[in-house]
Simulated assay, not measured.
Amino acid sequence: MSTALTPGQKGLLETALLAQRQRLESELALQLGGTDRVTHAREQLLQDTDGETAHDADREVDLARSDATLQALREIDAALQRLQDADFGLCADCGGAIAFDRLRLSPQVTRCITCQSATESRGGHAHPATL
Score class of each variant (00 low, 15 high):
S66V: 05
L13P: 01
A19R: 14
E43G: 06
I98P: 00
S106Y: 01
Q47L: 12
H127T: 07
A78S: 15
G8E: 14
T119D: 12
A29E: 09
Q44P: 03
R74P: 03
S66A: 08
T114E: 05
D36A: 01
L70D: 09
P128M: 06
T69R: 01
L24F: 08
Q44S: 13
S2C: 12
C112V: 03
E43I: 08
Q22A: 13
A57G: 10
A29H: 08
A68Q: 10
C112H: 03
A41M: 08
M1G: 15
S106M: 05
A126S: 15
A99K: 13
T39H: 10
V61G: 12
L30C: 13
E60Y: 12
A126N: 15
A118N: 09
S106Q: 05
H40N: 07
D36P: 00
T3L: 03
L28M: 11
A29V: 05
L80F: 06
T110L: 01
S26Q: 14
A29I: 03
L18S: 07
T69C: 04
Q20N: 11
G96N: 11
L32P: 00
E120N: 10
L83T: 03
L18M: 12
G95H: 08
D62E: 15
R102N: 03
R111A: 00
Q44T: 07
A86S: 12
E25H: 14
F100D: 04
L5E: 01
D48K: 04
M1V: 15
L70P: 01
R37C: 04
K10M: 04
R74Y: 13
A129H: 12
G123W: 02
C91R: 04
P107F: 00
A92P: 06
E25V: 06
A92Q: 08
E14S: 12
C91L: 07
R104M: 07
A99M: 10
T130V: 14
H127M: 08
E52P: 04
